[in-house]
């Protein structure tokens, strides 16, 4: 049974996407992944939109003063095991917005990040690559010992 679950986990990554305040460039590339050219549903990946159903939190853009708490809440509402992907340079480090007064920098200032995907804007191929990496990490994670 455990083996079945572990195997299924890799085949069914559901993502929830939150745009922290980048420029939308990466967001649309994430959406582009779902569309016919890239079609990540081939790998069972779904943009599920609700943290409670998701496995992977995909964040774009630098975190700012107002959405830091939103990001934290979303992270808390994703059941274990889960991984976080920082998509794009500014989600990873703040990027071009490093000297803006309202940004705190990369999202790792707020939540632990498992996979960083650089690029401005990130290419869909890079995102798919990142998901593969994220799935490897997901497999190493365990459920917390509840439920």
């Amino acid at each position: 049974m455990m083996g079945l679950i572990t195997r299924s986990r890799v085949k069914s990554p559901w993502i929830v996407h939150y745009c922290c305040g980048g420029c939308n460039g990466c967001d649309i590339e994430i959406l582009a992944c779902l569309t016919p050219l890239y079609d990540v549903e081939r790998f069972g990946m779904l943009n599920i939109g609700n943290p409670k159903h998701a496995d992977i939190l995909v964040v774009t853009g630098p975190v700012n003063n107002r959405n830091a708490r939103v990001l934290k809440t979303l992270y808390d509402q994703i059941p274990n095991p889960k991984v976080v992907m920082a998509v794009g340079t500014c989600a990873s480090s703040g990027g071009v917005f490093h000297n803006c007064y309202n940004t705190l920098g990369g999202i790792d200032k707020v939540i632990p990040v498992d996979v960083y995907i650089p690029g401005c804007a990130v290419r869909p191929e890079a995102i798919i690559d990142g998901v593969v990496l994220a799935l490897d990490k997901l497999n190493l994670k365990k459920r917390t010992k509840v439920g």
Partner: peptide, 26 residues
């Protein structure tokens, strides 16, 4: 059976006010 650390607030589009007695959002 539900353990206390399984409880999470309802989904409010990430706008939850943590620890509010009545579910609230910013």
């Amino acid at each position: 059976r539900v353990k206390s650390d399984q409880y999470r607030e309802a989904y409010l589009c990430g706008g939850n006010v943590p620890g509010a007695e009545v579910p609230s959002f910013y």
